[in-house]
Nucleic acid binder design. Sequence first.
RNA 1: CGGGGUGUAGCGUAGCCUGGUAUCGCGCCACAUUUGGGAUGUGGAGGUCGUAGGUUCGAAUCCUGCCACCCCGACCA
Length: 491
Amino acid sequence: MEIKKVKRSEDYSAWYNNLVKSADLAEHSAVKGCMVIKPYGYAIWEKMQADLDKRFKETGHQNAYFPLFIPKSFFSKEASHVDGFAKECAVVTHYRLKVDETTNEIIVDPDAKLDEELIVRPTSETIIWNTYRDWIKSYRDLPLLINQWANVVRWEMRTRLFLRTTEFLWQEGHTAHATSDEAIKETEQMLEVYAEFAENILAVPVIKGVKTANERFAGALETYCIEGLMQDGKALQMGTSHFLGQNFAKAFDVKFVTKENKQEYVWATSWGVSTRLMGALIMCHSDDEGLVLPPNLAPIQVVIIPISRKEEEKVVVLERAKHIQQLLKAKNISVKLDDRDNQSPGFKFAEWELKGVPVRIAIGPRDVQNESVEVARRDTKEKQVMSMVDLDNKIEHLLSQIQKNIYQKALDYRDEHITAVDTWEEFLNVLENKTGFISAHWDGTSETEVKIKEMTKATIRCIPLNNKMETGKCVLTGNPSKQRVLFAKAY
RNA sequence: CGGGGUGUAGCGUAGCCUGGUAUCGCGCCACAUUUGGGAUGUGGAGGUCGUAGGUUCGAAUCCUGCCACCCCGACCA
């Protein structure tokens, strides 16, 4: 594989695309806007899935699976939901192909038209709430806590690997509750689950907040979100958790009998994260040498590279390498022994750096003799010679240090890129030259929000949770404001 | 969907203006020598030049349609 070097500083999006391909994470497919996730990329996604799935189960959720197709009529039942998704829906209209007798080409059989078109799900609220109507009769059926791992389709105009693809993989939680309070608690709890996952596993610091009415999910009363900051100073929405009120219960007539024998509509939440998290992971940590994976997410945490000149050395070195592999495996560390004999050590060093493996151990005859190994860490590129004594514990410790360091580095960058501004001039200046989040007063109106977006492309990423109340003047209009909100250009 | 660009072996490319059956590097296969930061030599395999038509004795090259991708917009997780 020849690696084309593209620097972040020269062309950030070319760097990103190049990295996704050269690190063997994904590639474009024959279908417009759809990607093939390659084994190495999928292994990372599987690690994300496994960790999230565990967290969902620990908070009482169960997995289920609903259909890929949604009858068109279901879609029209919740008005704002339709508005939000209608323009990006793929629609199934026929169920059969046939060979055209004159051209001998495969065509859609006009006789096989569906009576009712089916929508390929862009999200599953409607089909799920239509099902919940039958599942929920009494307060004893609540709460209903369901998650599904699925693919969804949103017909986007412009796509980018992982960040925005026509089809993407995600999980969507859909829960039903007896009270508004309980549903809000669930919404907040899942936001917290996402935030912990992002920070502890992905090592991406996030800001928790709520969206403005403009940016809210179609059909939600409140959208909570986690926002990350990428290395180019643009924000990325990494997960959302919605309080849906009784909108879907009313649209699909989902009522339950209370203890007091009264009929009431059910309260709902939905929440999701997608393969977009792969994009966040890549853009937050990686460098000009390639991917940088946090140890908690790396499919391969340690790679061992044996080095030898002569045949007799090779035997000894390989024996030592296998011994170390066993030591680390016993510690539950995922280790790859790269014993390919058709590649030079230098090539392997570069390749595993490109793939973001957190720790590399090189062992040569010199090391065997000295009872040592050479240990290199991916995040700082530092190399050190370590003695074999207690090596497994030292590597384990190093992995957790790397995890912390990657997070801290991202956190420092993020914190340096939250800039409070009080004037419109400053706002424009920071947005253009410094980038990142801008903390500014906003008069609370949609008009101002839209105006700022039109003028600068910056949007209100969120109103941070636990925001400090502070009187001030809107950065654009000068109208009174009670708190600052976070603006940024976003993906 | 609008503006701009690109498409030649797995990857990166030359050739295109001025038509004559495709260049180079990396990778791949074999053997040998190598191996502490992207090894070297020798030999070999691999291409209906994105695709469908057209012009021509002859098309990677000229013309038309289509497709895909990239960049910038609009839209969006």
